[in-house]
Design a protein around this nucleic acid. Structure first.
Lengths: 235, 235
DNA sequence: GAGTGGTCTAGACCACAAC
DNA sequence: TTGTGGTCTAGACCACTCT
């Protein structure tokens, strides 16, 4: 038997998702639900608060609770860890570190991370392999002032993304997904220079400080980003 | 002054994000926090429950609460409403309905929506324009058994995606993002057939029933998907 | 058995909205 | 003035974990 607050939440969720309650419609008042379920106000409140934090309803002090207007195509998209993706499909993951250098932040690299010119960056280029075949080309910059331990990490053995995820908590990130011709990545990827590729860029910050920038190029013919997800807070 | 449960939550969040508490570390017990803040257990419980539902900590009955292992690059990506995107950038939105037909579900279309062969689908093709210039090409299928009102909607005036979002609640969706050559979309988009394009596919369900499938092709040189977001539940 | 979190009660005071 | 939701208290019983 599910907890009462969960059953209350589920019952209201069902009425919204079935269409019985539409956007803007009123949810029963807390005291009505108390009477319906024969429980205390805290229990009802917990159910409604959960629905509100999930975005299914809007609560207004002094007015009541209402079904929320549907959100605009907000989607939870899993941006996968490359090694995990490859291994999950039963392939052997391989990593080839092509270049590693410490560079000043006064050039184009520094501009990408929006850093002052006197900082030092670790610049990495590597190729991710699936069954020894090129899968993705990655160019990464790491702000050494924010992550000094990265200077000693072995990025020929551990993918930079996996290493950072395990070592550095982040608070803000930005993704950009574009399609482009392979261009410079054509050689390492083993495709034609005009081949359509999926380009994933990510900027990551921790408490306002830039941590890393990464640009990953995938062969469009072999890679896609997919995500299955449930509607607003349906878990 | 923020509510007490929010301040407690914020204080713990800060300790996790600053790195003071790392993955697997123990969060103070509820009774310890009660003593620290001089409040009741319900208040502490509300703070910790919120952190747990945000994925920052894991709570285990009989053991305690612990900092969660960081999630694998899970990101909230906003898949934008095309009309809103164009208008938000200050351009004039235009829509050209190229084709509209009701088709049986016994062909390739039915397979895309995974529907029985006896169902009827509404098949639409349209071009989204920004300042009268082609911006994206959309091919859509709508399950008329699930959304009969769509048969009467004016999709020459309202983009199908906007119409559906406003009229039909969904519970499950799946996205697939790929890069591909323009191919058939080259003509309507006004680009070369080999031009790299971003292809966004979406399947949408409502309580297990297919609602719609859409495949949208964007000119890679003019379009990108971006998302700025905060870490696990940081609002 | 002692300690943990999960749930629930029956009150209370407050800020805010509508009348 | 009345009613709403937001917050908080000081208890309680339970299921579970660890020893």
């Amino acid at each position: 038997m599910a907890p009462l607050h969960q059953r209350i939440r589920g019952a209201i969720e069902a009425r919204i998702l079935s269409g019985e309650l539409g956007p803007g419609d009123r949810i029963p008042f807390e005291h009505e639900l108390m009477a319906d379920y024969g429980c205390s106000r805290m229990t009802v409140n917990k159910a409604l608060s959960a629905l509100a934090s999930a975005g299914l309803i809007v609560r207004q002090r002094g007015r009541g609770s209402f079904v929320a207007r549907p959100r605009i195509h907000m989607a939870a998209l899993a941006i996968p860890d490359i090694r995990e993706t490859i291994e999950a499909r039963g392939h052997v993951y391989g990593l080839r570190l092509v270049a590693r250098a410490e560079v000043g932040a006064d050039g184009a690299e520094g501009a990408l991370l929006r850093l002052p010119a006197d900082r030092t960056l670790l610049s990495l280029r590597c190729v991710h392999l699936a069954d020894a075949r090129p899968y993705a080309v990655e160019a990464r910059l790491i702000n050494l002032a924010a992550v000094p331990e990265a200077g000693a990490a072995d990025f020929a053995a551990t993918p930079p993304g996996s290493w950072l995820l395990a070592h550095v908590p982040w608070t803000q990130a930005e993704h950009r997904i574009t399609a482009a011709a392979a261009g410079e990545a054509a050689g390492p990827l083993g495709v034609d220079a005009a081949a359509p590729c999926l380009v994933l860029e990510r900027w990551t910050w921790r408490e306002g400080e830039s941590i890393t920038y990464v640009r990953t190029v995938f062969d469009g013919a072999r890679f896609d980003l997919t995500a299955h997800f449930a509607a607003q807070g349906m878990g």
